[in-house]
Amino acid sequence: MDHALAPPEQPWHPVSEQLFRVRRFLLVAVLVPLAVAGGVLAWIFVAPWLGALIAAGLLVATGWGVVALRRNQRSWRYAERADDLLIAHGVQFRRLVVVPYGRMQFVDVTAGPVERRFGIATITLHTASAATDAVIRGLPPEEAARLRDRLAERGEARSAGL
């Protein structure tokens, strides 16, 4: 990776592959029925070639989406340093966030119904800034709980006034 940052004392952690599976599930669940329905309708009401074209186009888009989701999931990583948490993700649009423990106001752990089914959770770190975009997706629940407790503990120790 091209982040020439001071090495964290702990290595970068990847996130769970389940993140990819959740997103693939959602993508396929939406696009494949759409491809079938659009293809059949166009086949019947307009012309067979248009139906084939629509179905093929949507299926190719699905395939490309699956590849993109895979790359995106692999790009997610985070690392705990002595005074701050680093989160990096993104393939086309890369972002890296450095959140000092002392600046954290609260930590959210969320998991929607689909995420829960796939056994992952999302952690969101909130600072006094609305621009801080510190989210870690695709954490196994026990890792999310561990990280939450650890962040809370470190935040407590280093808490600074505004």
Binding site: Q92, F93, R94, R95, A131, D133
Partner: peptide, 22 residues
Amino acid sequence: QSVRRTQGPLERLLGLATVHLD
């Protein structure tokens, strides 16, 4: 509050990046 580094496709092509101080 936090520091961010972002890089879009064009920025990546040019070897550039943007730093945000929140």
